[in-house]
Design a protein around this nucleic acid. Structure first.
Length: 598
RNA sequence: GGCCCCGUGGCUCAACUGGAUAGAGCAGCCCCCUCCUAAGGGGCAGGUUACUGGUUCGAAUCCAGUCGGGGUCACCA
């Protein structure tokens, strides 16, 4: 198709499924095709690396493409020549106002105001679905996060993992993936025995006995209630009895109690899992055996002994023969034991079985969110999934770094013994779920995070949560004022507004920002980085506040234009579009948009 | 010692996965409230992206090495 200038009318613009950057990239590629067909470019060029993106410097225009530079070498042409030819053809398109060749060969496009105005129209009709993408094409993704041991309440570190994993899951969902949120319960190992013994001590205490908590038990207060609940359930049946008589029952009782605690903590944070997957359920069912057998059939299981740790002092190292997984065949640095020296399963084995199960459930992609202290586990887990799925199912492991707490400007060290252990519940009680979530997402997952109790509650620009919510509240405020002034700001009225009135540079600049939203969703989802959403919202809020404030100097930029309902509606439509994108973004982050600031 | 992450203005962090003159916010200096929320906005100044090489049209980003900070390191989970 040799694209003649495409004429677009107002109505059509409103109904385009708008990722304007993807659209213009499509135009660029189509134009290049015509150039190939006309013999202006050689055949067989790869266009994959060609981008259409907002330039860093707005003075460069609305959109930039690197097409000429990418193609110069393979086409054996000068970037400048390709750029000039391409520029000429692109400017035939009705949406393109001007094309400049700049720098080493960038093409800078300027688009018609109607394009940007049309984006606002699309947002108003699509609502918070604007930007919902097709990147995932419904591919099934499993996001495993939190997965904290069921031995106590969640603490700050877990909170970051929970918030990150949850936002990532929402982001992927928004980007068109079919997402399953999952929690792996480590209820199969020795620590749940420790939990059971600790609860038993609290149970004896509930019966009036004086107890001491020896090394290797959990002395935390949070088990007092569990001990009492156990007493309420079984009375004195286990008092003075051998461990063999009560351990199993108390273990089940205790892990259930802990999981209930954890679930309610997560709920308070706004996290709801689709699946809680029990490690214990893998034992005694042959499923671990099956997973290991699968590896064995691939020649990846053998009996052997590992070399001693390198460089470390030799202390009490002694070689032992164990069942090992040849993870080095899939990128690990060392083979890993799946069985202990005594022949029982090592922790790794059920985890292999668990991931085997995920693969068998047909996920196209797996994501594990771990705390940074589990970084040493990454390579072996990837090796296992690579082996089990024969390289077909990618596993991305995202590590969330440490959270440092600050109070009164000083670092706040957590210590179980000193009773200064900050739980997820403490965070929510003191700063609320919205602040907790947003703040934890204002940092890349693999960078350390400072969490300052005083600053996160501050209502200033320094506090991004507040700043973004404030923008939303301002929109709500304008809508209220407009209604009071007798202006119809109903959905229908705003959708019918004449957006061509939004022709001031300050307004167009905000429109360009909201137009970036679909593209941002894509790049954030592609890299599994929900923090990009938080930063984008902060920028968008900044742009909006900027426009708002310019109304102080330039009366025509105020959202409500006295005595001119039509213009007011157009401007409020813009404000509304901003609010919709903010709501969609905050929705991904799991933060409530505020209608009013208090 | 091995492996993983981090190192960007005085401080806290971004940088669309290799793009143009590296951007924000604090702190500093200068402006803006009879005006829909000033709980805000505009401007100035501030940088050899830890260091040294390499890859190419082009590097904060990729590779190698060095130096600093953190995490982790068989038979726990």
């Amino acid at each position: 198709m040799t694209g003649p200038a495409r004429v677009i009318d107002e109505r059509e613009l409103r109904n385009i499924d708008m990722n304007i950057f993807a659209e213009m990239r499509g135009l660029i590629l189509a134009t290049l095709d015509t150039m190939v067909a006309a013999g202006d470019l050689p055949e067989g060029l790869n266009f994959d690396a060609i981008t259409a993106e907002p330039p860093r410097d707005p003075s460069h225009g609305d959109m930039a493409t690197n097409a000429a530079m990418v193609l110069a070498k393979p086409a054996k042409m000068k970037p400048r020549d390709i750029a000039d030819a391409l520029a000429g053809k692109l400017s035939d398109d009705a949406r393109v106002v001007s094309v400049d060749v700049a720098g080493p060969g960038f093409l800078n496009l300027r688009l018609a105001p109607s394009v940007w105005q049309g984006v606002a129209g699309a947002i108003l009709t699509q609502g918070t679905d604007f930007g919902r993408g097709s990147l995932g094409h419904g591919a099934k993704v499993n996001v495993e996060y939190v997965s904290a041991n069921p031995t106590g309440p969640l603490h700050v570190g877990h909170t970051r993992g929970a918030v990150f994993g949850d936002a990532l899951a929402s982001l992927l969902d928004f980007a068109g993936f079919d997402v399953t949120r999952e929690y792996y319960i480590n209820d199969g190992g020795g620590q749940v025995d420790t939990l059971a013994r600790s609860v038993y001590l609290r149970y004896l205490e509930a019966h009036g006995q004086e107890v001491a908590f020896p090394e290797g038990t959990y002395p935390g207060d949070y088990l007092i209630a569990t001990g009492e609940a156990l007493k309420a359930k079984v009375g004195d049946a286990y008092v003075g009895k051998d461990e063999a008589e009560w351990l199993e029952d108390v273990r089940g009782f205790s892990t259930d109690a802990m999981m209930e605690l954890i679930r309610s903590d997560l709920k308070a944070l706004g996290v709801e899992m689709d699946v809680f997957y029990s490690e214990k359920s893998l034992y005694g069912t042959g499923r671990i055996e099956a997973a290991i057998e699968d590896l064995n059939a691939k020649g990846l299981i053998y009996e052997g002994s590992l070399p001693p740790p390198k460089g470390k002092a030799t202390d009490d190292w002694e070689p032992r023969i164990q069942t090992l997984f040849k993870s080095t065949a899939h990128g690990d640095d060392e083979d890993r034991p799946v069985k202990k020296a005594d022949g029982s399963w090592a922790y790794f084995a059920p985890d292999i079985a668990y991931h085997y199960d995920k693969v068998q459930r047909g996920f196209d992609m797996l994501i594990d969110v771990f705390g940074a202290d589990h970084g040493g586990y990454v390579k072996r887990m990837k090796a296992a999934v690579s082996a089990l799925s024969e390289g077909k199912v990618p596993l991305d492991i995202k590590l969330t770094q440490l959270v440092k707490l600050f109070k009164n400007g000083e670092e706040f060290k957590m210590s179980k013994r000193a009773g200064t252990f900050i739980t997820l519940r403490d965070l929510i009680d003191q700063v609320g779920p919205d602040v907790t979530r947003f703040v934890m997402l204002t940092r890349k997952n693999d960078a350390m995070l400072d969490f300052d109790f005083d600053k996160v509650l501050e209502q200033s620009r320094e506090n991004p949560v507040f700043y973004v919510q404030y923008a939303n509240a301002r929109v709500a405020s304008v809508m209220r004022k407009a209604t009071e002034a007798g202006i119809d700001v109903s959905e229908a009225a705003l959708q019918a507004a004449d957006l061509s009135k939004l022709d001031h540079e300050a307004e167009l600049s905000v429109l360009r920002k909201v137009a970036e939203w679909p593209r941002l969703v894509e790049t954030a989802a592609r890299s599994n980085e929900p923090h990009r959403v938080a930063f984008y919202l902060y920028e968008l809020a900044g742009d909006f506040h900027g426009l708002w404030n310019r109304g102080n100097d330039v009366p025509t930029l105020r959202f409500i234009q006295e005595g001119d309902a039509a213009t007011s509606q157009a401007k409020i439509a813009l404000a509304r579009a901003v609010a919709i994108v903010i709501a969609a973004g905050l929705g991904i982050l799991g933060v409530n948009p505020a209608e009013e600031m208090r």
